[in-house]
Design a protein around this nucleic acid. Sequence first.
DNA 1: ATCCAGGGGGATT
DNA 2: AATCCCCATGGA
Length: 272
Amino acid sequence: MAEWAATEAGDFDLRLTLESGQFFRYEAEGEGYLLLTQGHALRVRQEGGLLLFSGADLAFVRRLFGLDGAHEAALSLLQNDAAIAPLLARYRGLRIMRQDLHETILAFICSSQSNIPKIRLNLHGLATLCGMDVGGHAHLPPPGVPLDPALVRSAKTGYRAKYLVAANSMLTPAMLDALRRSDYPQSHAMLCTLPGVGPKVADCICLFGLGHGHAFPVDVHILRAMQARFPRSRLLTPQRARELAQRRWGPAAGLAQQYLYQWARDDLRRRP
DNA sequence: ATCCAGGGGGATT
DNA sequence: AATCCCCATGGA
């Protein structure tokens, strides 16, 4: 077994962050987790304010989990806002991860009309059937390669199979580079040209795969959360909720969304 | 603009 | 065991 390294991770909650619906290629293993991403088999576990890891270098781990000053800067924009501050305290340590762009696109095409366990099932199937083996671990297929529609379908991706096949062929290195070089509105528009990617999924990709803090994906959970916390805003449609969040929180809107999502999942479920 | 199909898993009956 | 429910996207 590889050697463990450690890094300071105060104000970080590994379990909360990993299981908050932004990243799906993990499984519980012993006291921690095994993550399969970007060719790495990364083992992580948290002991108090220390994050222990093996399988990738320090810079990779700190970037993946958002352990940088950008998080503190975004937090400081939210902590004086009465509409969101209680959630910051309740879910202390929840961070936005910074993931690989191509993996994020595949994951969130799978995410439409779905749920976390099923997305994990889809991605595991996709990696096993269409992907590549790296040291005994299945990783997602690389961008640009043609995927076998029958295999993609057998990963139980359902009607999303054709989107995954078409999108992966469109995702050339040039397109990924263009996405990375573009600003938030441009990359959002470009992502919406991919099959299976609409405004909501594009915002997830902007937030988790491109690090655009303004991105504010609105699904039913977020819409419910926004309606509950801004009861005086009449007729809060998904589009209006997004505009309100971006106007109110600016580059911290995406982080606010993550706290709202967690709260909605915990407290605003149907049939409580 | 409005309506509705779509796939598979989970909850409910 | 059968049925309802979920709820983003795309096409009619």
